[in-house]
Write a protein that binds this DNA or RNA. Structure first.
Lengths: 164, 164
DNA sequence: GCCAATTGTTGTCGTCAACAACAATCTTCC
DNA sequence: GGAAGATTGTTGTTGACGACAACAATTGGC
């Protein structure tokens, strides 16, 4: 964009009273500016893009990271437990784990006490990898600080604390 | 969830030292709690679900609402302009407008000054409908207030203001 | 007037949430 | 102890959505 020059319609749109020209950029959002959901959606898109870019070299997306982190902190969890905790559909978790298992980061161990379920564990390389992912994720978090300010980030975390 | 009662495994899992029981609910998130992106994602899911439910009767989703609002506030915009302003792919906007046009809420008017582009307008029923959508969206916004608090909602909007 | 850029459109691909159905297994209850 | 119901992991489908690529029509620069 940037300027967009005079654009097309030089006609000044006879005093319509109601509607304003709206040529270059300044396009009003009207009611949208008062909606938390809109701001949150835009912010979430930005934050995910930065996360994906910052962890691009290791090819780890936000959801994968959350799964690895939870398994790392709670070894032996079942797929149901992980899915519930993270708000992921258990059907979706199947594919996520397939991928992580193929990469030898996670392993499904058949539970002896409940033969329906799998106990999830990080593999040794998985543990090493997660440590690296955490360092990169911390770097991403610093980007967030730079974008919205250290204080605002903390405020945000406090406000949304009970959604985690 | 709610309580989940005593759950299953009453066995106390011998002092394993490293890994904690992790039976019922209390599953640690570890590094995740310090990540703004995780909190924002969960919040965004909640907020969209409430929006979709609150505007369920009129069958309007957040993205459709944002498109209608911007067109309503800036009649005559091109599809490119709307797409850019809302951060939507112009390819995606095509389908959104197809749907909204079929429902007679929006019309594409062939621009006389640039015959490549369409000028977007709300139809008369579209204007009436949007007024109703805005009332419902305001109701949704009250739900947000109830969930995170009036003050926190305002803080949030301020923090994320320049993402809109 | 010619070549590059823009606009709307169509199509493909991959991510993700929401369901539904199913086999294997566990739990409950009689 | 055994039938009935619930749970776990799995497979598949649907629809919203973002990212791209290609295309015809049209406009703009030069």
């Amino acid at each position: 964009m940037t300027a967009t020059a005079t654009r097309t319609s030089p006609r000044k749109r006879a005093g319509n009273g109601a509607a304003r020209p709206v040529d270059g950029d300044e396009i009003g959002l009207d009611a949208l500016v008062g909606h938390a959901g809109y701001a949150v959606r835009r912010f979430q898109i930005w934050i995910f893009q930065d996360f994906i870019r910052t962890l691009g070299d290791v090819d780890i997306r936000p959801t994968q990271y959350s799964v690895l982190t939870v398994i790392g902190a709670n070894p032996g969890l079942s797929q149901m437990a992980v899915a519930k905790r993270l708000g992921i559909e258990r059907a979706r978790l199947v594919h996520l784990l397939d991928s992580l298992e193929q990469r030898d980061l996670v392993k499904r161990v058949k539970s002896s006490t409940d033969r329906r379920s799998h106990a999830l564990h990080l593999t040794p390389p998985g543990k090493t990898a997660l440590a690296k992912f955490k360092r990169l994720a911390a770097e991403h978090e610093r980007h967030v600080e730079e974008r919205i300010g250290k204080q605002n980030r903390e405020r945000l975390l406090r406000i949304l604390a009970d959604f985690t």
